[in-house]
Design a protein around this nucleic acid. Structure first.
Length: 859
RNA sequence: GCCGGGGUGGCGGAAUGGCAGACGCAAGGGACUUAAAAUCCCUCGGGCCUUAGGUCCGUGCGGGUUCGAGUCCCGCCCUCGGCACCA
């Protein structure tokens, strides 16, 4: 039943050997170039999927390749083992999350080992281990000391399904990133990390990451959302402190004809006193779903407070309104409204008949408030703008700021869209937040010596009624570390993204028992040279990790700013789906030959390619794949079928192709191995005859593969080059006259050894096996990637392309030494070229050395 | 709306401004076989010319730069992804 070579036996044998030798264990070696290759560690969900296979295959090629280039490679693996699915499983199957998680880790570890991944397994840890999460708590305490962790009441994203709060980064289009259910807003007191303190640095740092994909950097820039403008105080007409607003269009200040406050603005309630309609509006806004209220499509509505402010530049009295479209969280929670030059303000002014004043005129045409149909938001010349009239608006923006500053009206200001990171989760399976509440002392951090705050084991896990830890009396009740009186523990746990924000540091010294990290080890290994993972973490994890790296730096533990020098975001693994209008997604075997659903006979929508998922019934199980073809084929296919950053379209036929290639190679080496022993003596290239082409191809392959991997991890083209060498090798005739035998044996052995070494990172088991069959006593992974010999690659003859007026008209073969002049003459004398030149006048001849001649004629 | 990717054969995909389509898959033909599988060989972007061999067209569309453009520039179209009442 198993076809082809004995991959099962071969793979199991070498996996045992590598493990027995601890072949991929590393320690700091100051004199060897170091390389840290990291693949995003998995959540132990139960079994690995094809996305993991692709991800880890990529990482393993990188790690093995750099090792074979002579680097000391750190390639660790661990488990992102805190999180909600464990709790859901606990409820569903009655298993404790710890048990469920441990079982999953055990199974997935055997799966990864089966793939032949070259991890240093001695560094493995799971972040649900107290030895790990105690350092989450330690970092939390340090951040609390530095005011980077704080507690405040705020509106937070609440997922009904998960029964917990979500960070802004975990809400996608108003829905939970995990279960896609609608997210509602709730007001709760929560712990936050002050990521906004690093907003500017996180933004600037992106410019110094040339090894990151542009789209990831763009997404982070977007998310941080910097805007530069001015903060301006609008005095109240009746006196009192001025209302501060933020604007990026200070050039339109003269056009501000009213003001709007967010309904939650502290001043709103004050202004609404004794005004039932205003109070009713505030109350209605408070209870309305915020996702709905803040959606762009929602109709603008508001209420007049009855109060007036003064435009600080025109000195006009302008009415103060409240409106649904102004958000308390952005800027100052209050805006100046310039209806002529802001579409929202325009719509609002029209609806409530508020005055409109044009203060920017576009180049051509003149706008008038009476005829304006929508706001003019573009640039133009400032008008009705006091001393600024006549100035182009971009210059106006620059000039208004110092004018405001001189008069004490306003100042330059920067705003970010980025919000602080809410980390409290009302769930069980996470790191307990090390905080104690004492009636007398208030918020008291758990003393360092009392860490870790252990997650209690006996907890009733349900999906309703707040934090499960709150129901564990023995956990909650605690003596106050400060006064010794009765106190209560914080019962929320940390967002699991805290765990992954610094795990890459911990891998450098995973056994460190008394410190968060060993600074010397981290200084040796960090930063990560190559980080590999899915694009879905473009903002979430990758932003948090950049933040934490800076926090740890500012604690004086490390000296770097950025954790990941190069980032590879691999594409998704997709497969075609079959969808019946009645039965939904169908397995391929549930569709008959005529493209109809086997159950109901309805025509099935065939061939739409989507990301593999159980619900779409288009998954391929890695275990089954490896049973049928082995790990090497699974790895090779997932690397060959597409460039790593693009989506990979699964193809069963393509897998067959990869398998065929490995079998072909196996038969070839197997068949020739006896004839290639003992190793034949080397023959200088210049003395080669029948073996010349093959030998040259070997060197060309070295060049192609090393360049593809060094430059940009073009695994697919590197593998294609290996296939070309195999194809040529398969055609190479080993039988021949006796006097040529030594040469044939030499070039064949050289080609095969080259091939195996270059293939080893991709298909490590087969390469190791065939290497051993050539009677090499040592592992192929102790070999170094060879260098090509430029003298061998240099051709003695070159093919020169001849064009006439840019069109291909001939090919000529010349000696490689031929000078440009010879190329030119040979091209002009070529018989075919001459027929094309008949009756034309040559005006110019362009010669590209050793490559091409283009003859240009008079048109 | 703003930002960022991407559009190349039947398909996945190759091509430092210099022979478009490497490599693989699929398809067709052939060899071996009682047969099938496996393996091996040949063809494989499209049109036209009777062939050897030519020739014209062809990298989303329209312009441009250049001796020469899939590649560079300008303007569009389509598509995927991110952000979006953000003041």
């Amino acid at each position: 039943m198993a076809r082809g070579y004995d991959f099962k036996g071969i793979e199991a044998k070498w996996q045992r050997t590598w493990e027995g030798r601890k072949a991929f264990g590393v320690t700091e070696e100051p004199d060897t170039p170091r390389y840290y290759c990291l693949v995003m560690y998995p959540y132990p969900s139960g079994r690995i999927h094809m996305g993991h296979v692709r991800n880890y295959a990529i990482g393993d090629v990188v790690a093995r390749y750099f090792r074979m280039r002579g680097s000391n490679v750190l390639h660790p693996m661990g488990w992102d083992s805190f999180g909600l699915p464990a709790e859901n499983a606990a409820i569903e199957h009655g298993l404790h999350p710890a048990v469920w998680t441990a079982d999953n880790i055990m199974y997935m570890r055997t799966q990864l080992k089966r793939m032949g991944l070259s991890y240093d397994w001695d560094r493995e840890f799971a972040c649900s281990d107290p030895e790990y999460y105690r350092w989450n708590q330690w970092l939390f305490l340090k951040m609390y000391e530095k005011d980077l962790a704080y507690k405040k009441p705020s509106f937070v994203n609440w997922c009904e399904v998960c029964q917990t709060v979500l960070a802004n980064e975990q809400v996608e289009g108003g829905r939970c990133w995990r279960d896609d259910s609608p997210v509602v807003q709730r007001e709760l007191e929560q712990w936050f990390f002050r990521i906004t303190a690093y907003a500017e640095e996180l933004l600037q740092g992106l410019d110094r990451l040339p090894g990151w994909p542009e789209r990831v950097k763009a997404m982070q820039r977007n998310w941080i959302g910097k805007s530069v403008g001015a903060e301006v105080g609008f005095p109240m007409a009746e006196g009192g402190p001025p209302i501060m607003i933020f604007t990026t269009r200070q050039d339109t200040l003269y056009g501000a004809t009213f003001m709007v406050l967010a309904p939650e603005h502290p001043l709103a309630r004050q202004l609404g006193q004794g005004k039932p309609d205003v109070q009713a509006f505030i109350e209605r806004m408070r209870t309305e779903d915020r996702m709905v209220r803040t959606a762009a499509e929602t109709e603008k509505e508001g209420v007049f407070t009855g109060a007036y402010a003064v435009n600080p530049l025109t000195q006009e009295r302008i009415p103060i309104w409240l409106a649904n479209f102004v958000l308390l969280e952005y800027g100052t929670g209050a805006i100046m409204a310039v209806p002529a030059h802001d579409q929202r303000d325009f719509a609002f002014a029209k609806k409530y008949r508020l005055p409109i004043r044009v203060v920017i005129q576009p180049e051509e045409g003149s706008l008038a408030p009476e005829t304006l149909e929508k706001a003019y938001e573009g640039e133009g010349i400032m008008v009705q703008s006091g001393p600024f009239s006549g100035l182009p608006s971009p210059e106006g923006r620059a000039a208004v700021v110092p004018y405001l500053e001189e008069r004490g009206i306003g100042k330059r200001a920067v705003n970010y869209r980025l919000r602080d990171w809410g980390i409290s989760r009302q769930r069980y399976w996470g790191t307990p937040i090390p905080i104690i509440y004492c009636d007398r002392c208030g918020i008291v951090p758990v003393p360092e010596r009392d860490l870790p705050v252990l997650l209690p084991r006996d907890v009733a896990i349900t999906m309703k009624g707040g934090s499960p830890l709150a129901r564990v009396e023995s956990f909650v009740r605690v003596g106050c570390p400060r006064c010794g009186g009765a106190a209560r523990r914080e019962t929320d746990t940390m967002d699991t993204f805290v765990d992954s924000s610094w795990y890459f540091l911990r891998f450098c010294s995973p056994k460190e028992a008394t410190r968060v990290i060993d600074p010397a080890a981290v200084a040796y290994w960090m930063p990560v040279d190559q980080y590999i993972g899915g694009i879905e973490h473009a903002v979430l994890h990758l932003l948090y990790a950049r933040f934490f790296t800076r926090v740890v730096r500012d604690l004086g533990l490390i000296a770097i700013d950025e954790p990941f020098v190069n980032l590879l975001t691999q594409g998704m693994v997709c497969k075609e789906t079959y969808r019946c209008p009645i039965h939904g997604f169908r397995l391929p075997q549930e569709v008959d030959g005529r493209g109809r659903c086997a159950a109901c006979g309805e025509p099935v929508e065939v061939g739409r390619t989507e990301k593999m998922s159980k619900s779409k019934k288009n998954v391929v199980d890695p275990d089954e794949l490896m049973d049928r073809y082995g790990a090497d084929t699974a790895r090779l296919f997932s690397l060959f079928a597409a460039p790593p950053e693009k989506d990979l379209e699964w193809s069963d036929r393509g897998v067959e192709g990869a398998f065929r290639f490995l079998n072909r190679l196996y038969r070839l080496v197997e068949g020739w191995a006896p004839a290639l022993q003992p190793p034949p003596p080397a023959i200088p290239y210049t003395a080669l005859t029948v073996g010349r082409a093959l030998h040259q191809k070997s060197h060309l392959t070295i060049r192609k593969v090393t360049e593809d991997l060094d430059r940009d991890f073009h695994f697919n083209t590197a593998i294609a080059a290996l296939m070309e060498l195999v194809n040529l090798l398969a055609q190479f005739d080993m039988s021949g006259p006796a006097d040529e035998e030594a040469e044939r044996r030499f070039v064949a052995r050289f080609a095969i050894e080259t091939l195996l070494i270059l293939l080893a990172p991709f298909a490590p088991h087969l390469a190791e096996e065939l290497w051993a069959r050539l009677k090499h006593p040592r592992s192929i992974f102790e070999e170094r990637v060879p260098s090509y010999d430029a003298a061998v690659i240099a051709r003695e003859e070159i093919l020169v392309v001849v064009q006439v007026d840019g069109k291909l008209r001939g090919r000529i073969v010349l000696s490689a030494e031929a000078e440009d002049e010879e190329l030119r003459n040979a091209a002009l004398q070529d018989s075919r070229v001459r027929t094309w030149l008949a009756g034309k006048t040559v005006t110019r001849v362009v010669v590209v050395p050793k490559k091409l001649v283009n003859i240009v004629t008079e048109q």
